[in-house]
Design a binder for these strands. Structure first.
Lengths: 328, 328
DNA sequence: CTGAAAGCGCTTACAG
DNA sequence: CTGAAAGCGCTTACAG
């Protein structure tokens, strides 16, 4: 039914081997190449990638395993990864783990079954720990969440520095009781918490933070309780844009005006952080770069397998807006 | 190097055929099944999907081709599609076309090379027209953008009704000069425009709309000119959430207060549309449903190929907020 | 530069 | 229920 390489060979009056070579840019005379191309056009032939992969032992496929595509950080990174991949003639298999270690295990298994060429992966803390014991079967670049052991290439933000910058920014603006809300599922949340704690300690101030599940709703309900308690902070640093929207909603529900009753700063320069009055102060991550560089590291690793492990640490950019205006 | 089905067979003391049957739930005695399972565990065997696909002629892969994952509508739909697919034990190949017909053609070719089981596709107008002439090689469900010819199953919003509802909402609130901004790349934009025109005509009012490229920046610059001209509308209906953010920025840049100087309504109930003061009135689309139903239609089609073509039209829900408060 | 032949790792009639 | 054999559609040594 479907036309195969034999049909093309017949139509072109050559052997299947020649068709294969002509299509892959191998050494074929101009004359035969033209015949093959004509036959391909005439028959509407499209190679069967499953067969090609099986025979060539190359899947030409990149695995991309992230927490949740609806997190704008991962949306943007994924777009960059895909662009790089398709530009290099490779396919992308995308998986959302919802920060669930079981799903991560399942998808890693799938990646192995696909015999992927390489993996871009943002693991949970749980899986990250296991990764330092068990090496993955394919070249892997971790994004957003670094391996402490240094077994895998990775591209991460300088989380401690970025969070420290937010904290110092708030201190300069006159805030003293600066609370923190950080995600509990990834090392990123913990690194940002550490940067937060360090910056406050350095200034002789007392940290006051909470951890919560990485969703806007979890942030909102955690903050609802906090905001209505007597130890409500003057300012709040949160570790991602989901928490940021949760914080704004919780503040409004509690009747808190930003920044008068509560200064607010967070991560990820989404369009709406500028549009929400009075503008939210954020650390902008170089999202496109993170995706692109991760792919670059991966391709280099594929070309030169025994390269030393590299950790690429990118800097965030602080975008100051009205939500952290000077305390009055 | 990598362990294959033969290695498992040897370890289990059975034939490769039995291993294959045991793994696929075929008719195998309990005893041998247990032996195979033990051998799989012992060897760490993972099947090679390329080989399985080639032999079984089933890719177990769904193609998902959308305009841009960064559009929250497609982000949400994609998550729903992926969940359905993985739940059914299928893989998803995701492609972003950026509304470029050439990329669409390229990706459709790729889908054919992957011999995908089925396709979920949001085509541009250009490609949609071609689709009515040339039938795709695989079962296809169109989302967001319907085929007029009725050659493909599809899941769409009732665009005319939804836009009409926004227009009537504005008329009721006292607005008369109601402008429109609609995307020019998809039929969705045009359908929404038609609904807009029809609703205004029905009320004896004059339509005043512009079309533009489907990006926030394009919307912003189109509106910048319009807002500073003497024929600036009192209210504006826009056809997606990218345009909504562009409209808010353009309004602020022009010093227009919402809704006093400009009422605003659009599509897609993103978190931030509630957070941006005074709250933006939107049509909420049943995004999860659109993805889920598209997959449901696809699976039914796979089971029963000769089903008549179905068009599923879902209704939006109007979420009224401050941006369309009654005219004073 | 070209072709005949082998084989990638599975699944699936076929026979028992 | 089980195994031996064929074959999915390609690519790639091998020989010329």
């Amino acid at each position: 039914m479907t036309v195969g390489i034999k049909d093309v060979a017949k139509a072109a009056g050559v052997s299947p081997a020649t068709v294969s070579r002509a299509l892959s840019g191998g050494p074929v005379s101009d004359e035969l190449r033209a015949q093959v191309e004509a036959a391909v056009k005439a028959t509407g032939y499209r190679p069967n990638l499953a067969a090609r992969r099986l025979r060539s032992q190359q899947s030409g496929t990149i695995g991309l395993v992230v927490a949740d595509l609806r997190n704008p950080f991962f949306t943007a990174v994924s777009r960059a990864v895909e662009d790089s991949a398709y530009r290099a003639g490779m396919r992308v298999i995308l998986c959302n783990t919802d920060e669930d270690p079981e799903r991560e295990a399942l998808y890693l298994q799938l990646m192995q079954e696909e015999r992927i060429t390489g993996l871009i992966f943002a693991p949970t803390r749980t899986t990250l720990e296991q990764l330092s014991r068990r090496r993955l079967e394919f070249p892997t670049v971790l994004i957003d969440r670094a391996s402490p052991a240094g077994l895998y290439d990775c591209v991460v933000l300088d989380n401690a520095a970025a969070t420290g910058e937010l904290v110092r920014h708030l201190i300069e603006r006159g805030y003293r009781h600066i609370g923190g809300l950080f995600g509990n599922a990834s090392v990123t949340g913990l690194e940002r918490r550490d940067g937060y704690v360090a910056a406050l300690n350095a200034a002789g101030l007392k940290p006051d933070f909470r951890l919560c599940a990485p969703s806007a709703d979890a942030a909102r309900s955690t903050l609802a309780g906090w905001f209505s308690s007597p130890d409500r902070p003057e300012a709040l640093v949160v570790s991602n844009s989901l928490f940021l929207s949760g914080a704004v909603r919780a503040a409004r529900a509690a009747g808190l005006s930003i920044p008068r009753d509560l200064a607010l700063a967070g991560f990820d320069n989404e369009v709406w952080t500028e549009l929400v009055e009075p503008g939210l102060t954020v650390i902008e991550q170089p999202v496109e770069d993170i995706g692109r560089q991760a792919m670059a590291l991966l391709f280099e690793r594929l070309q030169t397998p025994h390269l030393p492990v590299r950790k690429l640490v990118l800097s965030g950019r602080c975008v100051a807006r009205g939500s952290t205006a000077a305390r009055v």
